[in-house]
């Protein structure tokens, strides 16, 4: 069983990597959005350093919102979703496999490139490391909650900007604790509480999101 699930995760990653644009475009989007801010706010080092957490986190949030809508789309279009529902594995586990592979292919690149953007916004080494850790903790929540929304809109033909409206309010706690940890880092305050809260958010969403996502997918097959 574990072997089959690993195979499924592996195949998902292979599929995404073969369609390079599907994971490179969110990455480019992230980079460009973050680079727009210095141009809009002016190049002052102190200002940029002060707003850097907000810029990077909102940029990452938007990039993930952009890509998460595709997580079930091709499956629905090709009729593969029907097969997932008939699988010998619980749908919840299949969803989890898909989410893990989505995180690896869509979020990990963002996290890898984020220190580079941190340099552009004049973050120091300590802030950079906190940035990476907070993104590592926060992005799984984005993916888990986003999957619920994505599954809810999967059967709808033209949903346009509906998905961001559905899921962005749910992202607020992660945004608060993610940027909070970076603000604490720049003020040399202890970080444990922010990280603990984000860890708790990961666990809560891990408990609920795959279940609700698979329930939403079954509803989507209804249409």
């Amino acid at each position: 069983m574990l072997k089959s699930l690993l195979t499924i995760t592996h195949q998902e990653i292979v599929m995404t990597l073969r369609q390079a644009y599907s994971w490179i475009t969110p990455l480019l989007f992230f980079v460009i959005v973050v680079c727009l801010f210095p141009l809009a706010l002016g190049p002052d080092e102190n200002t940029l350093n002060k707003v850097a957490p907000g810029i990077i986190w909102v940029g990452a949030l938007l990039a993930i919102v952009m890509s998460i809508g595709n997580i079930f789309r091709s499956d629905a279009e090709e009729g593969h979703l029907d097969l997932l529902l008939l699988s010998a594995h619980p749908l919840t586990l299949l969803v989890l496999c898909k989410l893990i592979s989505h995180w690896i292919t869509h979020c990990l690149p963002l996290i890898v490139i984020s220190p580079l953007l941190g340099i552009l916004l004049h973050l120091n080494i300590h802030e950079e490391s906190v940035l990476v850790i907070s993104l590592l903790l926060g992005t799984p929540v984005f993916v888990l909650l986003g999957a619920i929304g994505s599954a809810l809109v999967v059967g709808i033909r033209s949903h346009g900007l509906l998905l961001p409206i559905l899921i962005m309010p749910l992202y607020i706690p992660v945004l608060i604790f993610g940027t909070g940890s970076m603000i604490a880092a720049s003020a040399n305050l202890p970080l444990a509480s922010d990280f603990a809260m984000m860890g708790a958010l990961v666990l809560i969403s891990l408990a609920f999101a795959p279940l609700l996502t698979s329930a939403a997918l079954r509803i989507g097959a209804n249409q």
């Binding site: 195979t7 499924i8 195949q11 599929m15 091709s74 090709e78 009729g79 097969l83 594995h89």
Partner: peptide, 21 residues
């Protein structure tokens, strides 16, 4: 058809086997 277009013919069968455990 439920065929993943980004996978090869053999890989599609492999995925199907994995789904059926």
């Amino acid at each position: 058809n439920g065929i993943k277009s980004t996978l090869t013919v053999a890989e599609n069968l492999k995925l199907q086997c994995a789904l059926s455990n």
